[in-house]
Design a protein around this nucleic acid. Structure first.
Lengths: 195, 195
DNA sequence: GATTGTATTGAACGGGCGTTCAGATACTCT
DNA sequence: AGAGTATCTGAACGCCCGTTCAATACAATC
């Protein structure tokens, strides 16, 4: 469609975000300098400011992009209508999606504290949105009698914490395939909440 | 016993560690300066170096102290011999102990990356030790037929991730008491792994 | 080849960093 | 009172920080 939408290169921008994502995830936001990011891209530090107004906004954009992508991908995910099928879809989706983006996952629950209040609230709202997706499944299942978790809200947080933990230990080419990991976690989640 | 064991105040040292713990947990290791820590204690920056050789060692000491305390407390915890009773004791212990030290918990899985290789390995070994405690319970229970988790190692990591997550949302004086939270998590864990 | 407009450099700004240390201070014991 | 020691200050060191901006290189159009 529009060929020339904005100023600035449409190649360098993404490269800066990719470099920042990698470095922030590895060393932490505060420990990474703009000069390091620029060096990773192969550019001088001043050039970064053609693509971002400041360092915090660079972080915010990464987090926002990650959350938007997460929510959009979940909305596009095929799933059934029964609570049990929807829960299985959620568990497998969360693991698969997060294993594809370990750096972004790491960042988004590690570096929220480096955001100003407004930016923080924006990301927090998206996170809440995502949690609500799971909570709705658990609530529907509780009403239908499929699930018997003692507390829907806590089950939501417990399941997400458990699933997100996969990114901290999973290594490509290790003992288990992604699908097998999905099977194992789905087994545990199903038994934890089913009536 | 020994009244004069080392040089330096036995009051200021702990105050420095407490201030560092609080600030590191709130803002991140790299974002906190030695001058900020000193100001929190009510002292000039140079005085900190009577108590720590450098900033990284200050972080390491906090993490090491936390892990040692965790392992010692678990070893001192009363528990039964049957796998089910031991698992219940572990779940309730982990939640209770971590809720008492949210800053240290936050630090110890957030700031490992700021340690040099040797210090990193030392903390990692302690963490492994702790995970092994839970894994042994699950293994014994699997052998005895009490548990039916599809993969003991993964169940270990999943349970710890789930339990540790409590510290990210629990607020004192909120909807649920600590004991109630323990009940709810124990219910989910038991159902997730029991045959 | 000159013109134009964007992309980038490279130096500079003020400031904060971790760390050191000579000297001031406060405490304890005789 | 005076000596001796434990504790801390305050200034300094060299270095790196995020950010700005005039000057420049470059690519495309006339």
């Amino acid at each position: 469609m529009a060929r020339k939408m904005g100023s600035h290169s449409e190649i360098t921008g993404p490269r800066i975000r990719a470099a920042a994502l990698k470095l922030f995830a590895r060393h932490g936001f505060a420990a990474v300098s703009m000069r390091q990011i620029a060096a990773e891209v192969g550019v001088q530090a001043g050039a970064l400011y053609l693509y971002t107004p400041d360092k915090e906004t660079l972080l915010f954009d990464l987090l926002k992009e990650h959350m938007d992508e997460l929510l959009a991908a979940w909305r596009a995910e095929p799933r059934g209508t029964a609570p049990l099928a929807r829960l299985e879809a959620f568990v497998r989706f969360h693991i698969r999606h997060n294993l594809d983006r370990p750096d972004a996952v790491f960042l988004s629950y590690m570096e929220l504290r480096n955001l100003g209040p407004a930016n923080f609230a924006a990301i927090e709202a998206l996170r809440r949105d995502y949690e609500d997706q799971l909570e709705a499944i658990l609530r529907d299942g509780a009403i239908a009698g499929t699930f018997a978790a003692p507390d829907t809200k806590i089950a939501t947080l417990a399941i997400i914490a458990m699933l997100t933990g996969v990114t901290t230990w999973y290594r490509e080419g290790g003992r288990l395939s992604r699908d097998r990991v999905g099977d194992i976690y789905w087994d545990m989640v199903r038994r934890a909440v089913c009536a």
